[in-house]
């Protein structure tokens, strides 16, 4: 094991080889093929449950939804083939579709970086060095437990309503605030704050990630006289990049699919005046309220392509800023 101890941050930082390449030892063995085959066989056993799930549970419904996206399907009657009809309607005739795309994009672009910065900041503050941190960690996680609760609509109105907490504070300074939740100009802003407020999940993942950084690196750096800031920049940040990357990818995917908050806070309408009409909410309304499931399926596939494209870009870009411990 003593070999591994000498992994210095500097070595870990340098991306020298593509991550998927096998370690050198194996390349030199004479029975390359036997090893490869054995490894592949083991991999498929490890993946067996996932493969079964994929083919039995996941793939069928996904393909079905792809088929339905080319049909007129009311849920109550048989689906009728309409070719690309749903797709052309979406892009050329449906103003609300464009609205929902805009609303969601603003939401993602603003709330994801905010939430991640917030979560990382708190994770650093709550990582170590103070008594009672586990208490604070728990307390700070509580909002996320409430995030999807039915009560959240009321709680949010208690904060951002016309007579809510925020306006109460503002009135101390003589400012008459608007009805944040119900004003079309500010409603989306409150949902962004709601998203930031439920920072618990990425915070926990950051905390876990911070614990994956061997303490010895910091000790070594301290011996070398590196300042805290320098330690953060050369040890913490680089070694945390896989986790930052994970949170970024996941939050982008999840935010594009945001549904519950708007559904609960706006009472399922995406109001006022479509200002919180999230993409998935509109999709849901199309599928289950207008009984146009074919259209909803088409919307879902457009979203899939959109998210997949963004995630692809994310993965490509990650080659330049994410460092893995498994690349020697």
């Amino acid at each position: 094991m003593s070999e591994s101890i000498s992994v210095t941050p500097e070595r870990a930082l340098a991306p020298k080889r593509a991550p998927d390449q096998p370690p050198g030892r194996r390349r030199r063995t004479p029975h390359v093929n036997i090893h490869r085959r054995r490894e592949a066989r083991a991999a498929y056993v490890f993946l067996a449950p996932w493969f079964i799930g994929l083919f039995v549970i996941t793939v069928g419904p996904i393909l079905a939804s792809l088929y339905l996206s080319f049909t007129d399907y009311s849920l109550l009657e048989e689906a009728k083939w309409v070719g690309l009809g749903n797709y052309t309607e979406m892009f050329f005739e449906d103003d609300r579709f464009i609205t929902s795309l805009k609303v969601t994009t603003i939401y993602v672009v603003v709330s994801v970086p905010l939430q991640l910065a917030f979560a990382l900041g708190l994770a650093l503050a709550l990582d170590r060095g103070l008594r009672g941190l586990s208490f604070y960690r728990s307390v700070y996680y509580l909002p996320s437990l409430l995030g999807g609760s039915v009560a959240i609509a009321i709680l949010w109105r208690k904060i951002f309503g016309t007579d809510g907490l925020v306006n109460g504070l503002l009135s101390v300074f003589g400012i008459q605030g608007p009805g944040w939740v119900s004003d079309p100009d500010t409603a989306l802003g409150t949902l962004i704050l709601l998203h930031v407020w439920t920072f618990g999940a990425p915070m926990v993942i950051f905390l876990a990630g911070l614990r994956q950084i061997p303490q010895s690196y910091y000790e070594a750096a301290a011996v070398d006289g590196a300042t805290k800031l320098r330690q953060f920049r050369s040890i913490t940040l680089p070694l945390l990049t896989p986790i930052i990357f994970f949170n970024l990818v996941l939050e982008v995917i999840k935010s594009f699919q945001s549904f519950t908050q708007s559904f609960i806070v706006s009472g399922g309408s995406g109001g006022p005046v479509d200002s919180t009409l999230f993409y998935t909410l509109y999709l849901y309304l199309k599928g289950f309220k207008s009984y146009e499931m074919g259209y909803a399926a088409a919307m879902a596939w457009v979203l899939l392509l959109l998210i997949a494209g963004l995630t692809g870009v994310n993965f490509l870009a990650s080659k330049y800023w994410v460092f893995y411990g498994d690349t020697k």
């Binding site: 009321i154 109105r157 016309t162 009805g179 119900s182 004003d183 009472g267 109001g271």
Partner: peptide, 13 residues
């Protein structure tokens, strides 16, 4: 009646 925002707020409940 209350203003539009407050009314919208009540109307959602």
């Amino acid at each position: 009646s209350p203003d539009a925002a407050k009314s919208a707020e009540i109307g959602a409940t």
